[in-house]
Structure formats: C-alpha cells, structure tokens
C-alpha cells in the first residue's frame, strides 16, 4: 500500500469535498456573487449601472455608514484598550484558578449578545431601569435624555459589553506567549519595567492588539440584533437599514440594499484581511522565539 504522505495528488480525491463545496456555493458564494452583480445592474433595463452606489451619497445612507463606522470604531477602540488592560491584570494575577475563572467569564459573556443583552440593558438603564431610578432617587442624577440606552451612547455601553471580553480572549494568549526569559534578559541588561514593556513587551503584543482591534471592528459593524432591539429605527445603522429593506418595512429599490451590502462587505473584508495579516505577524514573532 502506498503511504498517504507520499501519495501523488490525485484528482479523484478532490471529489471527497464536493458535498461541502456545493453547500458553500449554494448558500454562501453564489448568492454573494449574485448580490454583487445585482448591485451593479439596473433591474428594469438589465444594463450595467453605478446608480445604486451613487444613491448611497444621500444623507440617509451617508449617515448610516457614518454611524456604523463611528459605533464600531469607538467600541472597538474602547474594547481594545480596556480588554488589553484587563487581560494584563488577569495575566499578572497570582492565582491560576482566578485566571481560569476570569477567562471562562469572558468566554461566556462575549457570546452573550443580541436580544437578551439588549433587554438586560433596558432593565438596568432603561427609562425606568434599576440604575436610572436609583441614580435619580438617591443621587439626584438625571440620566435621561442626556444618556439614553435607546440611543448611540446606549449602544456604545451595550456593545462594549461584548467587545471587552472578546478582546480579552484574543489578547490573553499573546500575553502568555511572552517568555519570562525575555523579561529577565532585559532586566539583567539593565532595563526597568517600563523600558522592558516599551522596547520589548508592547512591540511583541502589538500585532495581536491590532488583530483584536480589527476583529472587534468587524464584530460590531456586522451586529444587528442588539441594535435592533434597543434603537430600532431611532438611530440609522447600515445593518439596520439593510434589515428593514429585507423585511420590506421600507420601500426602496433592492439595488440600494445590495450596494450597501457590497460596501459593508468591502469594509468587513478589509478588517478581516488586516486581522489575518496581524495574526500571521503575531505567529511569526512567537515562532521565531522557539
């Protein structure tokens, strides 16, 4: 019998993955290709057109993109900074058991998004929310209408909730990849704590932090359920607009929805691509150390 490793590339072997490929083609790749094509075609004349993309220039759509980018960028940045700091605190925690418990907490809470999360925030920070009322009655602090859970600031609070633990999960392995010998070498060469982090630690973490930032951005940009439950139509976001178009709640040329989708895909593609690049760079750094 020929060994599997030495076996020649056999065309028939490729048939083993046909069912899977067909499924991906049918439910993912072809629909997306047709969507891209649809965004470039005039439904009436069947001719090539850029008019859908040009329509995105109207204030409503510009506003949606701006809001989405602002929300994703801001929560990604907050999540990235807080997540990295908390990950550092976890990494330096003396008890392994506590470290483990905190990582598990992050694991559970980052998956806790969508409608239940949105509702939980209504419970605490809604108009009659527990914290809103306590602040009002006991501390005479009036949250509404300055800070409203049903607005941009509320969405930031809710998104940060799942962004921070996601960042922790992404960056903890990078902290654990820092070898103690690097720190000790730096020390014996006369470096202070700060000098070590500035010259060695942070540069080594940077690719993972940037990877985290890009993934957080994509994560927030594509989110729908949380925003749908909280703000519905009070704040215009890209995903909400596309959603309303599908549900038929807004009468529009579907071509515009497709054009919005394609622009979102490009943005997501860019951030996922950046994520892949940074992850590769992070792996490269870690590999080089062994």
């Amino acid at each position: 019998m020929t060994s599997i490793k030495s076996r020649k590339r056999n065309i028939t072997d490729l048939f083993g993955v046909v069912p899977f490929l067909l499924f991906c083609l049918a439910f993912e790749i072809i629909p997306i290709i047709l969507l891209i094509r649809g965004s470039l075609i005039d439904k009436a004349t069947k001719a090539f057109t850029l008019k859908h993309y040009l329509s995105l220039g109207t204030p409503l759509y510009i506003n949606s993109f701006w809001n989405s980018i602002k929300l994703s960028g801001l929560t990604a940045l907050i999540g990235c900074i807080l997540g990295t700091l908390i990950a550092y605190a976890i990494y330096r925690w003396p008890s392994i058991k506590v470290q483990h418990a905190l990582v598990t907490l992050s694991d559970v809470t980052t998956n806790f998004a969508g409608a239940p999360l949105a509702f939980a925030f209504i419970v605490i920070l809604g108009m009659n929310g527990v914290i809103t009322q306590i602040l009002l009655r006991y501390f005479h602090i009036q949250l509404y209408p300055k800070l409203s859970i049903y607005s941009f600031s509320g969405l930031v609070l809710a998104y940060v909730y799942f962004q921070v633990p996601l960042m922790i999960l992404l960056v903890i392995p990078a902290f654990e990849g820092l070898k103690k010998e690097w720190f000790e070498s730096a020390q014996s060469l006369g470096a202070s704590n700060f000098q070590y982090w500035w010259r060695i630690g942070l540069p080594l973490l940077m690719p993972s932090i940037i990877a985290g930032l890009t993934l957080l951005f994509a994560n927030a940009f594509g989110a729908f359920a949380t925003a749908y439950t909280l703000v519905e139509s009070q704040l215009s976001l890209v995903t909400l607009q596309i959603g309303f178009m599908i549900a038929g709640e807004v009468r529009h040329d579907p071509g515009i929805g497709m054009a919005m989708s394609v622009v979102s895909l490009i943005l997501m593609g860019l951030s996922i691509g950046l994520y892949q690049l940074s992850t590769r760079r992070a792996k490269w750094l870690v590999r080089s150390s062994s």
Partner: peptide, 24 residues
C-alpha cells in the same frame, strides 16, 4: 478550507440574509 471557514465572519448576517432572500 481555512479561508472558507473564516469567510462567514466577514459577511454580516444581514448581508447573508439579503443575498439568500434575493436568490431564492
């Protein structure tokens, strides 16, 4: 295979929904 498996992360669910609803 790795690329195919990371692809869904790059497609917002609303976009996937729109694409599928339009085709089928």
């Amino acid at each position: 295979l790795d690329v195919l498996m990371i692809l869904p992360f790059g497609i917002p669910t609303v976009v996937l929904a729109l694409a599928l609803v339009q085709v089928y």
